[in-house]
Design a protein around this nucleic acid. Structure first.
Lengths: 217, 217
DNA sequence: GTCTATAACGAGATAGAC
DNA sequence: GTCTATCTCGTTATAGAC
C-alpha cells in the first residue's frame, strides 16, 4: 500500500495523487477540476487532456486504489502466516489511511453511491466484493487453524467486519478522534480470536496498537 | 388549531420531508434547491422564504432528525425493560431507515463532514455523542443485570457499535443488499450477550430477524 | 501537453410585484 | 407566501493557438 513516491512523477500521476486525496477527504461531489488544477499548477483545460471527464477520472482512481489494495492483501498473504496476524495487518491498512487524515476512498464513495456514474458504481461493488472474498477465506483459515472462533458463517463475519471498519473510520473522522477507530478495531479483533489464542496474544496485540504515535512500522 | 391530517402538512414541513429524503439518499452535496422545488411544486425563490440558505436548511434537518431519534430512544426506555431487548429495539431504528431505502441522515453527513458548514458539523458531533452516551448507559445496565457481557469499557463498545451499524448500512446500500445489514447487526448483538443469556434468547432473536425477507436461520 | 478563451449549464441567492 | 426575473458565481467541458 505504501510505495514511496518518486520526487518528480509525471503529470498524470500527480493529477491522480491530488485527486485521490481530494476524493478521500471531500468526496466525489465535494471537489472540482478547479481544485485539482490549483494544486497541480496546470489549467483546467490541461486536466481534460489527461482525463476527458470527471467520471473517467473517478473510475481510474477506484481502479488504482483497488489494485493497490489487492497488492497489499497479497503482501499480507506472503509475509504473515497465521490468521490473527493477517487480520491485524488487514486492519492496519485501514489505520494507515486514517492516520494520513483520509477516509477509505471506497467507503467515502459508498455514501455517494446513488449519485455516481454507473461505471464507478460497478467498480465500487467490485472493491467490496473482493475485500469480503479475501476476508472470508482468511476467517475460514483461522477457523481451521483453531486461532479464530466464529459464531456465524465466515462470509457474514467478513461482511460485518468490512462494514464496521468503514463505519469506524467514518465516525473517527467526524468526531476528530482517530483513537475511536483504534478502539473499535481492537474490540472487533478480540471478538474473533478463540478464547485460548486470545489470552496468549493479548499482551502483544495491545502493545502494538498502543505504541503507534503516527505512521510507519 | 389541531392538525390531524398528515396528508395536508404545511409547506415548511413538506419542504423538510422532501429535503430530508434527498439528503439521506444523495447527501448534502448531492441535491439542490431545484430538486426540492420540483418535488414540492413551488419555485426556488419560495424555498428561500422558508430557509434563507441551504446551510440553514441542513441544520434544521439535523436538529429535527436528532430530536426524533432522541424521542425514539426515550420510547425504548419506557417500553423495554431489559438491556438486550432495548439493544434490539435500537438496532431496529437503523433497520427501519434502511428498509425505507435511506441511509441514516447523520451517517451520510459524516462522510461529507469536511465540506459541511460549521454549524452542521457541530450538530453532527452532538448527534453521535448523544447516541454513544445513551448506548453506554444501556451497556452498563446490561452488565449489571448480567444480561450483557462486555470485554471492554462500555463507552468503547458503544462507539464501536454505532460505527458498525452506520458502516453496515452504508455497505448494504452500496451493494444493494439490505440483508447484509441484518446479518451484521445480528452478529454484533450476539457478541454482546452473555453466554448464559445468549442461549436462552437465541430462538427468539433469530425468529424476530428472520421474519421479513426470510434469509438463513 | 499546455495554454487562453469561452461555451453551456446549474448552483445558491436576491429584488420586488402580487 | 408565492411568484417572475435576474444576478453572480462555479461547474464540466470544448475549440483552437502555440
Amino acid at each position: 500500500m505504501s510505495d514511496p513516491k518518486p520526487a518528480a512523477a509525471n503529470t498524470t500521476t500527480r493529477i491522480l495523487d491530488v485527486a485521490e486525496r481530494l476524493m478521500q477527504t471531500r468526496g466525489f461531489n465535494g471537489f472540482s477540476y478547479a481544485d485539482i488544477a490549483a494544486e497541480v499548477r496546470i489549467t483546467k483545460a490541461s486536466l481534460h487532456y489527461h482525463f476527458a471527464t470527471k467520471a473517467e477520472l473517478g473510475c481510474t482512481l477506484i481502479e488504482r486504489y483497488s489494485a493497490a489494495f489487492e497488492s497489499a492483501l497479497q503482501r499480507i498473504g506472503r509475509e504473515r502466516a497465521d490468521a490473527p496476524a493477517r487480520l491485524r495487518a488487514y486492519v492496519k491498512l485501514y489505520a494507515e489511511v486514517l492516520a494520513d487524515e483520509r477516509m477509505c476512498l471506497c467507503g467515502m464513495l459508498a455514501a455517494e453511491y446513488a449519485t455516481l456514474p454507473e461505471p464507478m458504481q460497478r467498480a465500487l461493488r467490485a472493491f467490496f466484493a473482493a475485500n469480503e472474498r479475501w476476508l472470508t477465506q482468511l476467517l475460514e483459515q483461522g477457523q481451521q487453524e483453531g486461532s479464530l472462533a466464529l459464531r456465524v458463517p465466515a462470509c457474514e463475519a467478513a461482511a460485518m467486519l468490512v462494514g464496521a471498519l468503514e463505519g469506524g473510520m467514518l465516525l473517527a473522522r467526524a468526531s476528530g478522534d482517530p483513537a475511536k477507530f483504534t478502539g473499535a478495531a481492537r474490540l472487533l479483533l478480540a471478538q474473533l480470536e478463540s478464547p485460548a489464542a486470545a489470552s496468549a496474544n493479548r499482551r502483544v496485540r495491545v502493545a502494538r496498537f498502543a505504541a503507534r504515535p503516527a505512521r510507519r512500522s
